[in-house]
Amino acid sequence: MTEKERRTGRDESEEERADRMWGELLQEVRVAQMGVQILFGFLLTVVFTPKYGTLSDTDQTIYIVTVMLGATATGALIGPVSLHRLVSGRRIKPQAVEWASRLTFVGLILLLATTGSSLLLILRVATHDGYVPWLVTGVVVWYLLCWFALPLWTRRRHTE
């Protein structure tokens, strides 16, 4: 057993590791995909409601940006499935896992932006109060802490 295997606690080949990491990544993507697809589906219906015509130009711009963010987040989070399907059997799973992981990370950032801008639009329409940007900033900071800061802190604290 090599020193690296002893540190990771796993005795697996590169292909076995890629298989395991692919399975873990798919589980993670399923959770994020569900959230982005529900949010994006909701966003697509807003333009067909009577309220949409009464929105200010600013709110309509926020809506359009939000829909575009949702569309790009959906693409990034579904991308790993397509990637796997198109490269399956080509003996490049480690590289596929790496690219799928990158797409997932980009998808999470886009999902964060979509959620933040959705919240901004909804609270602007619901309250018209000046504190809305502060509320949205607080939620986005919370997401950043939960989705990125805590995992990075944990990785740094518990790995060499």
Results as ranks from 00 to 15, higher is better:
L144E: 07
S117Q: 06
T66L: 03
G130P: 04
G75Y: 01
V31P: 02
V46I: 14
L145Y: 11
L145M: 14
F105S: 12
L108R: 03
L43T: 01
P94I: 07
L86H: 09
G70A: 06
D129Q: 14
I122N: 04
L119V: 03
A113S: 12
L144Y: 07
T159Q: 12
G89I: 05
G41C: 11
G107W: 02
L83F: 03
G89H: 05
L112I: 07
L25M: 15
G9W: 04
L120I: 00
Q33A: 03
V29W: 00
L26D: 11
V47E: 13
R6P: 00
R124G: 03
Y63G: 02
L120V: 01
L135Y: 13
W147I: 11
Q27F: 12
T104K: 02
A32D: 05
R85W: 11
I122D: 02
T159G: 07
L152M: 14
P50D: 07
L44W: 09
V136N: 02
F105E: 08
L108A: 04
G75A: 12
S13D: 08
M68V: 13
V97C: 01
L150Q: 08
R91I: 06
L44K: 09
V65A: 13
E16R: 11
C146Y: 10
R7Q: 14
S82F: 15
P94H: 04
I38Q: 06
W153C: 08
